[in-house]
């Protein structure tokens, strides 16, 4: 009998705990570089993003090798030469959605504040995003600029005109309540 009570308590505890987290494992991120020579775009549909609804904390993990380019040679250069994804396989973001408890089903703009890590370099960023928050879904959508040089990503002189100094990063994250 006793183990059963303990088990029930444990289950109840995990249920109430689980409701506090919203998550997506299939979030979308893309980046876009435009230069007089060419436009380069890469998509990633395997973004992991977790929101803790008790305090609005946001944690995002991105696999660098999951970025898909139009040309395989670009993808190769991106992984091997620029972001060195063997050495730094992930990009991460850890931060906070500000005034999270005042949000609702109406689309609103929120400020997101936190640390982004790409290529082993961490930078503090602040960005605006559109947010819709309901019982079943929290959707975040936005974009922000990233300066390539800020993250110690070296672009060889030969292709310096092909790649923009500042790259636009977009994200679309549809979080669902986490239950397991």
């Amino acid at each position: 009998m006793k183990p059963l009570i303990v088990l029930c308590c444990f289950l109840l505890a995990t249920i109430s705990y689980a409701q506090e987290k919203f998550l997506t494992k299939q979030g979308y991120t893309s980046f876009f570089s435009t230069s007089p020579v060419e436009d380069i775009k890469a998509d990633n549909n395997q973004v992991l993003s977790i929101i803790d609804t008790s305090n609005g904390a946001l944690a995002i993990s991105i696999l660098m090798k999951s970025f898909m380019f139009e040309k395989s040679l670009m993808q190769e250069h991106f992984n091997e030469n620029y972001v060195e994804s063997d050495k730094y396989p992930k990009a991460t973001f850890k931060g906070q959605i500000l005034s999270f408890d005042q949000l609702g089903a109406d689309e609103k703009m929120v400020t997101i504040l936190g640390d982004i890590t790409i290529h082993g370099v961490t930078k503090n960023i602040e960005t605006q995003a559109k947010i819709i928050k309901t019982e079943e879904n929290i959707s975040l959508k936005g974009s922000f600029p990233v300066k390539v040089a800020d993250f110690k990503i070296k672009i060889p002189a030969v292709v310096i005109n092909n790649i923009a100094e500042t790259i636009e990063v977009s994200f679309e994250l549809d979080h669902k309540p986490y239950k397991k």
Partner: peptide, 11 residues
């Protein structure tokens, strides 16, 4: 295989 987050990811 592109890596591991909470799960192993294959594309």
């Amino acid at each position: 295989c592109t890596g591991y987050l909470m799960d192993v990811i294959l594309v």
